[in-house]
Amino acid sequence: MDSAKREDYIIRVEDLVVAFDSRVVLNGVSLNVRRGETMVILGGSGCGKSTLLRHIIGLRRPESGKIIIKGRDITQLDNEELSKLLRKVGVVFQSSALFNSISVGDNVALPLREHTKLEESTIQIMTKIKLDMVGLAGYESFMPSELSGGMKKRAAFARAISMDPEILFCDEPSAGQDPIIAAGLDQLILKLKKALKMTIVVVTHEMASMYTIADRVIMLRGGKVIFRGTQKEFKASDHPRVKQFIDRRPEEYSEEEIGRYARALTSNSF
């Protein structure tokens, strides 16, 4: 049972519906994130996790539903108001989304140069500190094209935390990282939460990461929330899909699904 009051939540998503053409991707998703907690959004590939994240950070407008961040419904804000609200929000995108024409250091420093009046000397030290936190000390002058995929992801992480955001969103932060680096990023998430009181939302399907960082978990399937609760409740859940996820059991197709597949294969059009 969730005992927190509405005002304790820094993020509230209410009955979110998202569709691409006629395909409904999120179908009435609701979730609440408390200030200072780490919420992990779990689910298989294509379940709508990243779509949910892209809507929470205002990159897309939903068909219906509310997304309330720090008491303001972002679906009702104009671009300027949204941009102002999101200054205290950091995002680590799945694709890294670094600017390829500027160095790694400049990528990390960019939000500080754009949005603060800090001296350049302070910004450069902050950039070094953030790169050190993600294990990229000394890479300031490298260009993104000179980094591996995993390093790019970590550079993007450094950029996302450059302004010490109040809320940090991470889309698959461990994807493409070796187990040691992935564990290091999990530890960094824990430290950011503790030291800087960050509220953190992580989209992942990495169970080890979830068990390390999550205060609470929601699991999506077919555009709906099929589980919400603590790690302990997740482990103890008797929901068949949750159990399948925990046990890493492959999909078992019903006769009906196989029949549908066979019909699709033998039809003449896409």
């Binding site: 030290i125 902050m126 500190i129």
Partner: peptide, 12 residues
Amino acid sequence: YMDSSGVATLVE
């Protein structure tokens, strides 16, 4: 409360 701009300033 001190954020990383504070510690960076102390490094300066």
